[in-house]
Design a protein around this nucleic acid. Structure first.
Lengths: 139, 139
DNA sequence: TATCAAATTGCAACAAAATTGCATTTATTA
DNA sequence: TAATAAATGCAATTTTGTTGCAATTTGATA
């Protein structure tokens, strides 16, 4: 469990003012340790306004606390960024995994090897793997 | 320019009946040679009903004419499948590229190398590259 | 090619997802 | 602690996508 002071520092270091909703949402992301969708937040914070949750996700994404994970389901999910991310420099070169069984989307601690395409300038790569996650495979 | 008979054959080989809208939409995908969003279709086919275009995208995707390309913008785009795709077997192991300048999303003729994750069963991989496409880089 | 069943289309209504404006409340700074 | 700036909650609105149904079109076949 993360201490309030630590969460507060994360927000401050990303130039975000410390509010009740932001602390709760960030703590939720850290505790769950997986990518979360808007729906996940809505379910968890039933007493918060939907608009506030939308705005929280946006400010977190803008300021480098979260990154948006591409998904073909039409529902974006969000994952925690590295400490080093800021509004100036979002830097993500890790893979994502979506489990077809439990639906969980998570950030893997694996780098995407650099890809070269002749004639193209590649500055960013997003790799989303699908299959069965380690939890479901073990069960 | 693709002949009507060829487009008709593509539809038939995917078990889709040949209708005016379907022929036009498929011809548009082939002609544009890039991934298209619902909005692209809406702009192109102003006299067709929105519902019909949605249903066309869905039937094409279900029957292996198109595949959905994950995107973090929230807007799904669709790309042409290989000849071999069917409703039974969608098989895509190529990379996608999204240009930050012109916004074009395209399918690259490059395979995604297989990825292994210890403890996980990986059955599918989606790689989306971003940067500057060859057209914009040359200009 | 005429007929008929099955599928597609267009329309209207509806549902869901996301955004905007604004008054109120909360946080930050000095 | 007061003043300023930012975030929140609410209502209204826009955008996106879906559903039901009647009219039309397609595909099969006689």
């Amino acid at each position: 469990m993360l201490r309030y002071s630590e969460i507060k520092n994360i927000l401050k270091s990303h130039k975000l003012s410390v509010t009740v909703v932001r602390v709760d949402v960030l703590e939720f992301f850290i505790r769950e340790n997986r990518a979360l969708s808007f729906k996940d937040l809505e379910d968890e914070f039933k007493d918060s306004d939907r608009v506030t949750l939308y705005r929280t996700l946006n400010s977190f994404t803008d300021n480098g606390v979260l990154h948006k994970i591409p998904d073909d389901s039409g529902f974006a999910t969000y994952g925690l960024c590295h400490d080093t991310c800021s509004s100036e420099d979002h830097n993500h070169d890790h893979m994502h995994f979506k489990c077809n069984k439990c639906g969980t989307i998570e950030c893997l601690n694996l780098h995407i090897p650099p890809v070269k395409v002749p004639g193209y300038q590649v500055t960013e790569a997003n790799l989303i793997l699908k299959g069965i996650c380690n939890n479901c495979a073990a069960a």
